[in-house]
Design a binder for these strands. Structure first.
Lengths: 248, 248
DNA sequence: GTTCAGAGTGTACATTATACACATAGTTAA
DNA sequence: TTAACTATGTGTATAATGTACACTCTGAAC
């Protein structure tokens, strides 16, 4: 049984990435503070999905709880990308006003542990209730107003994602259970911000024996229907190369 | 001015790696608890170098402070490898006895942020005072008694090091300012636990334009003296390849 | 001057990366 | 029914990189 007593100086923030077959998106929460009398909007910006951890809760569990609360999803790719404890994390007058407003006994200096989550957009749009939560294209974040140091956390997470995606088979976490090679190529292109030659990309995928063709094709598309594939973690684990050599 | 008031539930642990031209070592602190009357040794094992953070101190600064305290060194490669907050971090009777003994008002559940440090052994052995601190070969750690979850932290750090060393030029941090190619090869072999072909290794190094030969050779060695080289970070930054493609 | 020990070098072959253009299948609209 | 459309899917030649493998060289020590 979870006590729900929070640890005042430790929180977890989730950078939740999603892919909509076109571009990479991030799930953000709108923060709004209105003056109680005039109704004037004093603060309106966005934050990452985050909250304090509970006293009897692991860091990983806290992140999973927050993710589930927002998306309704369990068993999602979720991995730490860093711990942040700069003294000036809450430096703007806006953020101070906010903390003042919610006055829940949070500590002055909060250490936050950042988690990176990857989810398949198609699953989530259904579950999303009419809350103040929405997907934003990753490319638009640079011009957004964000709370605390969340813009910095976001870019740190994005860099971690870009690093990891080159070396581990995590791109599949952004796709449905089955997908076409073109969709897979688009994920890589969206995450890395480049484009690849179609033939060379497919040659590469052909060497990934853990990407397995299904007896299933696209239907109802106004062009030649594409073959569906799935990612097999078992085959990946068995066939992954030792890769001892180093690349610099 | 630092207040020295500790944050009771947040600590930093440093996994300090060193290389002695032969093998990879780690710096550990001996922990000993004697019965006050009988003098009998109740606990004797090893811990990572770690301590609570201060209230007005960044995580990175806390790690640098701990590192400096032990080795006397500044400006060392120091990087986070994870945050750890399992509820059962302090689970053994031994660890509870210890916390009971030092009774400094630490919290029940402490979140620790792990830092990985790489240092050149030759610099440190000089500065090390006769404290309860010593280098241990990495290979011997598996059979050592260690406090808390520090063995787990250690192996997590080692894995992070092995992952990083393949992709970033951090092996140089384990060597003196100038070094021979054989020494560089031995670092890679010690860290990755493999061996490389000498000719192929040198061919690889020849392509790293940031490894620059000096007008300087070994002296007084009973064999052909080796050429010295240095690592130039500037050249590295300028010439590093975009490396957009992915490798799985 | 002979021995010793580690430094330093080259070549052939296999694998992988890169650049590049056209036929195919199914839907839609004339 | 035919033609146009759209994204799928395929091959080849060349360059670059990885891998396997054995001997000469230099200086110190005896």
């Amino acid at each position: 049984m979870i006590s729900h007593k929070i640890v005042p100086n430790i929180s977890v923030d989730c950078v939740i990435f999603g892919f909509d077959f076109e571009k990479l998106n991030v799930l953000l929460v709108e923060r709004e503070l209105k003056d109680e009398k005039s109704g004037e909007i004093l603060i309106k910006d966005h934050t990452l999905a985050g909250y304090h951890i509970f006293e009897d809760e692991d860091l990983d569990s806290a992140a999973a709880r927050i993710l589930k609360g927002l998306t309704g999803l369990d068993n999602i790719f979720l991995e730490q990308f860093g711990a942040f404890g700069q003294l000036d994390r809450v430096s703007s007058p806006k953020d101070k006003m906010w903390l003042d407003y919610i006055k829940k006994g949070f500590a002055d200096r909060i250490i936050t542990v950042g988690y990176l989550a990857l989810i398949d957009n198609t699953k989530v749009t259904l579950t999303l209730k009419d809350r103040n939560v929405a997907w934003f294209p990753v490319a638009t974040v640079k011009d957004m107003e964000m709370a605390f140091d969340h813009k910095y956390l976001f870019y740190t997470a994005l860099e971690a994602l870009q690093r990891k995606v080159k070396v581990e088979p995590i791109a599949f976490q952004l796709l449905p259970d089955y997908f076409t090679i073109s969709q897979l190529q688009k994920v890589y292109e969206a995450v890395l911000g480049t484009s690849f030659d179609k033939r060379n990309f497919r040659k590469k995928v052909a060497q990934m024996h853990y990407v397995i063709p299904l007896r299933k094709k696209q239907q109802g598309v106004p062009h030649k229907p594409a073959q569906y594939y799935l990612f097999s973690r078992e085959v990946y684990e068995k066939t992954r190369k030792a890769r001892i050599s180093f690349i610099i």
